[in-house]
Structures are given as structure tokens and as C-alpha cells.
């Protein structure tokens, strides 16, 4: 077990309106089995002992599935490995390192405090069409609707998105296309999603644009940083769905 001393440069911003800045902190005795967030817990305990305001950051399940954690570490969302921040462990760093920690940066993700941002734009996009309109109780027997394993697996791959926003944070254009396309693709592939297919593509893309996200230039940074490895193929599928819907839907 190795212990290390680190310099942390952390974005501190008291609230949404305040101007923020990078602040420097020294931290010592960090064990390489700690998770990155546990390292921040240690920092926060230290800060509180010194009567300083602890660093605010979003986190919850700490097992890589809730999508709460959202730190840009040394310039990369969720840090040097393709995983969530909570699953990043200190063995990825070495003694004496300086680590820069910043919030997701996007106009559509305003900072709430320190490293915490407001990602409700994602929810609003989902409200605009990320569902199959089926009331409780009206479903047929599940096995009356066979779905080929390949399609089911592909739909599942798209559905693994945890909504963390690393795609937006990684994209030089702060585009949300990977997130939006994952949902559109999942439902476009499945028979359940067919009835509302065109409307869904049109309204979700419209909401995405209204939120102020950038546009995709196909650099692939989103997928390369996505902790769930959502594929760029989803974006192509969304483009296809959207163009198809725009050309053929009844909505004027």
C-alpha cells in the first residue's frame, strides 16, 4: 500500500452568480486503495477541521451507476480512465502529482456551487419524448412480443447511459448528441418505440437545441470518455431518425 502527497487545484465558486476561481490545496497521506471521491472526503474533513467550507460535489451511489458524480480531472471528464469518477481509484495517480479538478463546463450545465452543476436540461430533453406512451395495466403478455437477441442487446447497449453528462463535458462543442441519441436509438430499435418514432426524434432534438447545447462535429470525444462506452453509432442513428422524421412526418 502506497501513500502519497498531492496538490489539488479545485474550482471554487460559492454560488451560481458568483465568480469562481481555481484554489490550491495540499493533501497528504492518501492511500492508493482510496477512491477519488474518498480522497475528496479526506480533504473535506481536513477543511472542516480548519473551519473552511468543504468542497461541494455531486455524488451518490459510488458504484458507477447513478450518474451523479461529475468531475473533470486533469482536463478529462471522470479522469484518466474510462469510468465514473467514483470508480476511479488513487492508484491511477502518483506521489507528488498536481491534480486539477473542475466542474462540467457547458452553458446548458450552469454551476450551482464549486464542482456541482445543474443537469436538469437532460431531464427536460427526456420529458420531451423519451418514453413509450403506455399506461399502467394495458400491456400484453411480455412473451407475445419476441425481440431478436441482437436487437435486444443493441437496445440494451444504448440504454446503459447513466445520464452523467461526461459526453457534454468532453465534447469541444458541449454537444449532448450522444446522450440524446442513446435514448432515441434505444426506442427506435425496439418494436415498442415504433408508434412515436418520428415525433420522438423531432421533439427531443428540438428540446436539445433549445437547451443551448452545441452541435456535433463527430470528433468522437463523447464516446471515448463515456463511462458506459455508448457508441457513436447512436448519433448516426439519431441523425437518420431525425432526417427521416423531418422529411416525412406530418408535423409542419
Amino acid at each position: 500500500m502506497n501513500t502519497m502527497n498531492l496538490t489539488l487545484k479545485i474550482w471554487r465558486q460559492p454560488n451560481a452568480k458568483a465568480k469562481g476561481e481555481m484554489k490550491s490545496y495540499k493533501i497528504s497521506g492518501i492511500n492508493d486503495h482510496m477512491s477519488f471521491l474518498e480522497m475528496l472526503d479526506v480533504l473535506n474533513e481536513d477543511l472542516q477541521k480548519k473551519n473552511e467550507d468543504p468542497v461541494v460535489f455531486d455524488h451518490d451511489c459510488r458504484e458507477g451507476i447513478c450518474g451523479s458524480c461529475s468531475l473533470v480531472i486533469n482536463g478529462r471528464p471522470h479522469g484518466p480512465q474510462q469510468t465514473t469518477t467514483c470508480q476511479l481509484h488513487m492508484r491511477s495517480f502518483k506521489d507528488g502529482d498536481t491534480i486539477y479538478i473542475e466542474p462540467w463546463r457547458a452553458k446548458a450545465f450552469p454551476v450551482i456551487k464549486d464542482l456541482m452543476v445543474d443537469r436538469s436540461a437532460f431531464d427536460r430533453i427526456q420529458h420531451s419524448g423519451g418514453y413509450v406512451s403506455v399506461n399502467t395495466g394495458s400491456a400484453q403478455d411480455a412473451n407475445n412480443l419476441p425481440i431478436g437477441k441482437e436487437i435486444a442487446d443493441e437496445a440494451f447497449n444504448s440504454a446503459t447511459c447513466i445520464g452523467c453528462g461526461a459526453c457534454v463535458a468532453a465534447c469541444k462543442n458541449a454537444s449532448a448528441m450522444l446522450f440524446v441519441s442513446a435514448k432515441i436509438s434505444q426506442l427506435a430499435m425496439l418494436p415498442q418505440g415504433q408508434a412515436e418514432r418520428k415525433k420522438r426524434a423531432e421533439s427531443m432534438v428540438a428540446q436539445m437545441d433549445a437547451e443551448g447545447f452545441g452541435a456535433c462535429t463527430n470528433t468522437g470525444a463523447c464516446s471515448a470518455e463515456c463511462p458506459k462506452e455508448i457508441s457513436m453509432a447512436n448519433i448516426a442513428m439519431m441523425n437518420r431518425e431525425y432526417l427521416g422524421a423531418k422529411l416525412t412526418s406530418e408535423a409542419v
Binding site: W11, E102, A215, T217, A221
Partner: peptide, 18 residues
């Protein structure tokens, strides 16, 4: 796309795959 990120990162490192 520039407007979509009004504040830039202090450090930006690109993924090797990009």
C-alpha cells in the same frame, strides 16, 4: 458551439482516441 461553452477548462487534455 463556442457559445455552448462560455467558460473554458483551465486544463484540457484530449483523449488519445480523438
Amino acid at each position: 458551439n463556442k457559445a455552448a461553452r462560455p467558460i473554458q477548462y483551465a486544463v484540457s487534455a484530449s483523449n488519445a482516441k480523438v
